[in-house]
Nucleic acid binder design. Structure first.
Lengths: 146, 146
DNA sequence: GCACAATGGTCAGCCTGCTGAGGGAACGTA
DNA sequence: TACGTTCCCTCAGCAGGCTGACCATTGTGC
């Protein structure tokens, strides 16, 4: 049944694996009205409030995308947006009490991570390769002298 | 500058790497009015015409998604859709002459694959891990006794 | 002080993914 | 022949990515 993937481009392999991982992850997070994108933001916000741009850069996403992810998080009450008093261009984003609870509960039960661990033979090796790859590709993308 | 990704969930690493790979790939394919999704379809169609459902299953995507990818390919003249004469439920998809040309030209210059090769330390190992992972996760998703 | 950049967010629009719902064609069985 | 089921595709709507264009605020230089 499973097609022969040896002829697939590596990019397609990455995309497919990522979609499957997101799907498993989202199924787990739906309990808290969350998904993979929102969860990553809550995770960052666990430490301290941040501006939207800081969040966007931390998760390697455009500002506009972060804006809409925050719309959804705000709509579901996980997050609170407030114009900065010192610099009124900035929007300070912070966890609500409900958001912190969701973050803690969702983090405690990391079934999805366990699933990936089982699916990937050598998880640390895979992670190391992905991290190296992201570093290389994102440098190529975000620096002028690509 | 590059944030510390050691705390990232593996799913997020996969998504980020996949997006960066898609971005590089798309930049290369834009010359032919193509993107990563459309290219995968053309690649499959290189052998022989297929029905939409066959294409969807081959690239592990829902039928509705494939339908829209084909809309775009058709609009740009890469592909031709024709109702099957033997089974009028089916739609036979085939390459146009322009589509075949685009496929051949885009395949010849595989700069994006080379880029990924350079970014990933050990490309064959990465590919092997991804293929294993896709097999495992997609079995979990698409079979009843997940 | 004022014109002009740089910075931080948003709006609009496109693309790929998903789910849910529905329509038309083919097939089984009564 | 008629009916229900299955199969294949499409429409509608949501979400996360992206680009391009725009607005408000802040900072800079003359």
């Amino acid at each position: 049944m499973s097609s022969d993937m040896s002829g697939w481009a590596t990019g397609r392999l990455l995309s497919t694996a990522a979609r499957l991982a997101e799907h498993a992850w989202d199924a787990h997070l739906a309990r808290w009205d969350l998904n993979h994108a929102g969860f990553a933001v809550l995770h960052l916000l666990g430490g301290a409030p941040r501006s939207q741009r800081e969040l966007a850069q931390a998760v390697q996403v455009e500002d506009q995308t972060m804006s809409r992810v925050l719309d959804r998080l705000e709509r579901h009450g996980h997050v609170c947006r407030a114009r900065s008093t010192t610099d009124r261009r900035r929007v300070e984003v912070s966890l609500t009490r409900a958001g912190r609870t969701a973050l803690e509960e969702a983090s405690a039960d990391d079934a999805a991570e366990a699933l990936l661990g089982a699916a990937a033979g050598d998880l640390p090796a895979l992670r190391a390769q992905l991290i190296g790859m992201i570093g290389d590709l994102s440098a190529r993308r975000w620096t002028p002298s690509g």
